[in-house]
Design a protein around this nucleic acid. Sequence first.
DNA 1: CATGAATGAGAATTCATTCAT
DNA 2: TATGAATGAATTCTCATTCAT
Lengths: 195, 195, 195, 195
Amino acid sequence: MQNQNKRKKILDAATHVFAEKGFHQAKMDDIAQRAQVAKGTLYYNYSSKSKLFAATVTGGMDEIMASISHEMESELPFIEHFRLLVSCTIRLYLHHSQVTRIYSNELSIGIDSETLDEIKKARQRFIEFISDMLLTGQEKGYLKPLNPRLSALALVGIVDSLCNAHLNESNASSSDEIINTVFCILSEGLVNHSK
Amino acid sequence: MQNQNKRKKILDAATHVFAEKGFHQAKMDDIAQRAQVAKGTLYYNYSSKSKLFAATVTGGMDEIMASISHEMESELPFIEHFRLLVSCTIRLYLHHSQVTRIYSNELSIGIDSETLDEIKKARQRFIEFISDMLLTGQEKGYLKPLNPRLSALALVGIVDSLCNAHLNESNASSSDEIINTVFCILSEGLVNHSK
Amino acid sequence: MQNQNKRKKILDAATHVFAEKGFHQAKMDDIAQRAQVAKGTLYYNYSSKSKLFAATVTGGMDEIMASISHEMESELPFIEHFRLLVSCTIRLYLHHSQVTRIYSNELSIGIDSETLDEIKKARQRFIEFISDMLLTGQEKGYLKPLNPRLSALALVGIVDSLCNAHLNESNASSSDEIINTVFCILSEGLVNHSK
Amino acid sequence: MQNQNKRKKILDAATHVFAEKGFHQAKMDDIAQRAQVAKGTLYYNYSSKSKLFAATVTGGMDEIMASISHEMESELPFIEHFRLLVSCTIRLYLHHSQVTRIYSNELSIGIDSETLDEIKKARQRFIEFISDMLLTGQEKGYLKPLNPRLSALALVGIVDSLCNAHLNESNASSSDEIINTVFCILSEGLVNHSK
DNA sequence: CATGAATGAGAATTCATTCAT
DNA sequence: TATGAATGAATTCTCATTCAT
């Protein structure tokens, strides 16, 4: 319990520092200091920097998926349900920006391949999670029968791109405008068919 | 002349190494060796690793934009023109994967802010470049009047996400399937309105 | 305790190497080797080469001043007291030649200004220390009422010049001859007033 | 002639840069730029950085000695003559501070021994030059029969110490006060014999 | 005579990791 | 379990010197 408490403190500190500085700029010293433990304690709990990083990403993505699942439990007409998927993905993306910033920016090599795989798997799980939701929509006939994995990648790619811009730039659009735009594009596309 | 030749050799080597390893893992030694020049020559031509990196990204993005512009010169019905935009963006993204891999993965901190700005500006130029094309389509009534910058970010985000998956993963979809899916989503959305 | 011991070992090694080679020629590798610690340990204890240098100079000057103070505690007729000041300054200058060689030769630029200030302050403290002694002599009427700071600078300048010559050159005068000459000049001047 | 002109330009630039930055911080690039010649030209005229440095110091000291000789040619009562020696040494020290700053601060090792010898010889020539003047005064009975070389070192040490303080510090004494103090100390000493 | 692009040996500094306590 | 002093391999950057033109 005391044990778990300490691991939690370390993980929180690591999440913060990795998000703020990126993997290579984050120093184990920074993390130890922020977690208020000695540097040795980091290694007592996680065998290396890479492993700690992987734990950060994996844990964070799991939390996000759990939150989305929770929010999506409500019964709604499909189109509202779909809008909810878009809106809560975006909200959680922004809310967990510390994790998603890691998720989207740190694919680079420089981590041992075993650990890199772990991170890639966390990403894939997220894509599959979205993909499953889209597949359900397709099976019920609400969505076009496009490749669901590519569709999920598209959804995540749009969300990622707009959220990153929102987080990085000062002349940012509001999160509501982002939600509306993403929903509009994903549901009806860019082309004006009335013409 | 000899001079420009050597700068080109360095830039090519740098592009390759940065794309393969990412900024922090790329070593100046590697780049020098690949360019077949002495390490000092790197510094004689580019004042720091960051500056060399920025030159790599900026130059690469410029090339991509020039290629897209060139391909888009043809006269076509709008919808074909739009499909062409999608298709050539994806093709160039994949073809210049060395540059785009840098583009999408290396926003992280760890570069002096002046140089980071240079890189961000190159990205913004690319977004504006796409944004301008979409705006033209809107003005002619072919595209819905959505925020053009967000639309451009969406287009780039989708392309980025699918191309990265294509490049990183073994069970990849073909590039044609990617082009079709992206075009389909962007033009008509995911929702099946016939239902 | 073990800690202080190691810092002492480093400081001793640094003093020796800086004195022998000067700041710019002294290599952190040399100092580490001489102190029998790893190079990282140097940086674990002193944040930079400059800081280590400053610690060397400051510590050395403090030791010298403490020794002079100690030797000057005895009660003597003024002129003997003054001769003692000259003689022990010179003896300590020669004995701590490792430090004083640094003191006199390394004002040059190439150290961050904060650290340079630290060193300059150590020098000023030494000048003030001598200056205070001269002032006391003036107040008691034993010394002429010349600007005490300039007088102290003169004393240190003479000692520095003669000791450096003594240390650098082979055809050196004995230290006793140096003490006599300095005392003679400082007490009565060069001019033969009997003529 | 054109030739000599260029060597002069290089020497002037080198003097300035060495004085401002010290030997190790002065870069051949800086000197070349200041002299408005290519770096290769430096090496065409002086075989190495050390040699250029030595030429700078040697030339500068020669100029100073020539100036002092020139000023000392006048016929005056001895004591006035001696005061003139002090005053013109100090004035030239301050005026050629670019050279004297080098003279006094750059004994450190890090120059090949052959060139270091050249510099030491220039310093010795200056000491001998002063020493000869003092010896003449002794022979005529105007000065006490102290070791003339040590006396010269004392004179130069005092001048050096006070001039350096004057040049480095803001709360500086005026050059007149320096001249008076040095003359007073050297002619009559610090001790108040009336007591 | 003059140039300046190219070189590469050399140095300071960083930081993940270890291990004695 | 927890600590933090110690490590040393690894990396960026500097700059005197060379030499083809």
